[in-house]
Design a protein around this nucleic acid. Sequence first.
RNA 1: GCGCCUGUGGCGAAAUUGGUAGACGCGCCAGACUUAGGAUCUGGUGUUUUGCGACGUGUAGGUUCGAGUCCUAUCAGGCGCACCA
Length: 943
Amino acid sequence: MAYNFNEIEKKWQQRWRDDRTYRVTENSEKEKFYVLNMFPYPSGAGLHVGHPLGYIASDIYARFKRLQGYNVLNPMGYDAYGLPAEQYAIQTGQHPAITTQQNINRYREQLDKIGFCFDWEREIKTCDPEYYQWTQWAFIKMFNHYYDNKAKCCKPISELVDILAKEGSAGIDAACTEELEITAEQWNTMNEKEQQETLMNWRIAFLNETMVNWCPMLGTVLANDEVVDGVSERGGYPVVQKKMKQWCLRVSAYAQRLLDGLDRIDWSDSIKETQRNWIGRSEGTEMKFHVKESDVEFTIFTTRADTIFGVTFMVLAPESELVQQLTTDAQRADVEAYLDRTKKRTERERMIDRNVTGVFTGSYAINPITGEEIPVWVSDYVLAGYGTGAIMAVPAHDSRDYAFAKHFGIEIRPLIEGCDVSEESFDAKEGIMTNSPTAAFAGCKLNLNGKTVKEAIAATKQFVTENKLGRVKVNYRLRDAIFSRQRYWGEPFPIYYKNGVPYTVPEEYLPVELPEVEKFLPTESGEPPLGHAKVWAWDTVNNCVTEKSKIDNETIFPLELNTMPGFAGSSAYYLRYMDPRNHQALVSTEADNYWQNVDLYLGGAEHATGHLIYSRFWNMFLFDIGASVKEEPFQKLVNQGMIQGRSNFVYRIKDTNTFVSLNLKKDYDVTPLHVDVNIVSNDILDIDAFRAWRPEFADAEFILENDKYICGWAIEKMSKSMHNVVNPDIIVEKYGADTLRMYEMFLGPLEQSKPWDTNGIDGCHRFLRKLWNFFFDKEDNLIVTDGEATKEELKSLHKLIKKATDDINQFSYNTTVSAFMICANELGTLKCTNRSVLETFIVVLAPFAPHICEEIWEALGHNTSVCDAQWPAFNEEYLKEDTIKYTISFNGKARFTLEFAADATNADIEATVLADENSKKYIDGKSIKKVIIVPKKIVNVVI
RNA sequence: GCGCCUGUGGCGAAAUUGGUAGACGCGCCAGACUUAGGAUCUGGUGUUUUGCGACGUGUAGGUUCGAGUCCUAUCAGGCGCACCA
């Protein structure tokens, strides 16, 4: 019988379930290896052929490592909270928990068909109370810690309270929202509420009135990485800036450690670079400027301290509190009008429209070094959230300042020898400084003339520091993460409010479970959906959730109405897999010590600035409090490329129901329409299927070429709306999971994006059928023979072992698949039937095509799984050749080949070549400069 | 604008890291077995030339006995950040 993949795959998938083949337990005898995929959000559309790419790749690696004797953890779960299920709930009233579970079931069914070695007994779902208990727990820990900049780690907030009570804030160097100066006396006279509000300034998880990305259509705020081009990542709705009180995580406290950590992990350069960009470290100087005829002083941040003599105006961000203080009465009306206008513009509008706008405040600042008076302006090209929200403008050496100065006719004062600023600014950090105003301002002691820019920056820094005019400062672009979402389908906060002050639910009473609501929409008074919950108050006596109607603000208090964002549950899930059913801790010390962190993490590169930053931050925090043994969660990261869809088009002649074939369409006025790729084969449309596809096409007419309707095509993202989704189930049914696995790997380099194209899949399928025929004849009799393998067979086999071992280690799976085919071709030519050779082949192939290998393995008489076989050792002896062919070149031009004994020395080879009749023809009496012999390859004679 | 990556047959792609291109698969051509094949097997397949040969890794230079690989410039495509001072 032929290779019956459907039957074989069903059989082995069942067997693996029954035997719990892929269950893992901590085993100190064996070395661990932790493989992890970014867990999926179970969307309603199910899996398409792009999803399994990473799972297959990691599955191969996991199986490979297991064969090499490692104890491999390869778990799977679901990122189950998210917007689509909630949007669906709003539309249909269906509870998101139900939709989500249905989607999970569908995913599981599809995943099972591909034959992964996941340990499903460790499955987690982020919406499961047993899981989110630990998300809430981590949040409480963050609430109760602050970040000590000197110690470079976080510490309990109680220690900060002690310091405040004894010494005030003077000695505190901690990550904070704003620099506060509080004496011990002030602190001690504060009431409870004031103290709590003050502590918010330092907590890692803190409540803050902040500018947020508000998406009115979604009715919620979004994190920076959830906003793309000024619209929401999900849905593409407009996003506006709005000031709101929100929970935040002080991610910025960890900016330097997040940056430093990148040097210790094995990630691709491009992802590291993206993270470095996102963190955006910049080293510069903070300088204090006094305001003329006023007590007010303000600080600016600059990386170009050397340009202090070129400052001809100052600019404040419109949102800066200084604007109100510095606006003179004469200018107030103009400034107010400007602020109004700015406020109305969305982020997106500000991004598109880069016309120079601004208004003068009426105040003048004093240059701290020269004493010169400088006008202070307001303009929205200065961002409130970066640096101090105020800048010193140097139009000669900054293009934005230059545009502003040109527009408002402000002086442009060049400071670098020979630079031309008549047309544009000179932004480069190079050249020799000039124009230091030593004469104009006799009091000025700083002279930068003749220094390079680099030297001048250093000199200015030193001068500013020594004269206490400011300080050296490092700034980061990385902002704190906004952690509140005005949504239903997310983790509830373990927070209740007493007298308007947030308090955490005691850890031992977690989880605080998500309450039921009647509606998933915001309330009429504009509260988030949890405002509809009837049972949503905290009873501090019985430590439980109770009816809202019982709130008395004595012992029963209102609970937080916001929920946590998507990244909350996905930030530490890898730890939970180590010990998923633990009720006492996120992860037991034993499990954490054994599994440590993820050795190989696979997922899409699109998470570079979201999940992969939050997750590192979250884990560093857990590391600081001793809940995780490793500072970095993911040691090696591989980003699989996206599988794009190949869409097909039909061309409808305008205002008709007639469709014209691709190469004839130029004669008509046509509208291209996406057509379901499943009714198109090799770009030829199945016309009957098309008529049946949609009612409006039932009586469609066609203009054919060669009796066929040829469709157009394009490479696009695989999505429902483009009708280009290919379901893996269909491939599995037609070719089998093993073929799908081999083919997805064969398609090209793992990290590259590539379009899905079934055109080559037959090659992989043919290979497996051929393999089957090595073992069985037409009547299913095993036809392998015992005995010694021949030299050629062993050579071919060991070439494969070497190639497979090397390539799998480098995730070069496409070349590994090629190596299998080459070896099978060679063994076929050799008519190999040798049991030991073929058996070893099966072991090496097992990670790629586990079902067929199990079946053959069993037929060969083994009563254990091929998963528990041993990865074969490579033996160089078999690859040795008796003779080696050398290409003989003269002056780099290949001429002919000669064969030598494998152990011939260079001297032998040289002598033979020079004595050779052929060679003499090329040398022809000319003198030989040298003879280059590349081992086993080439002899090049230079004449 | 800044940073990163990629560019090789009709197509997906290889190339032991500087060693004399195009492995493997698809497609195509020819042949065999077939009533037939979109099944299977065998052989061929970068361009050009009848042939020896010549030319070929986006383009133009350079280093080298030798360059797809290194250097310089340039073009094209992709990704990330983007009024970050």
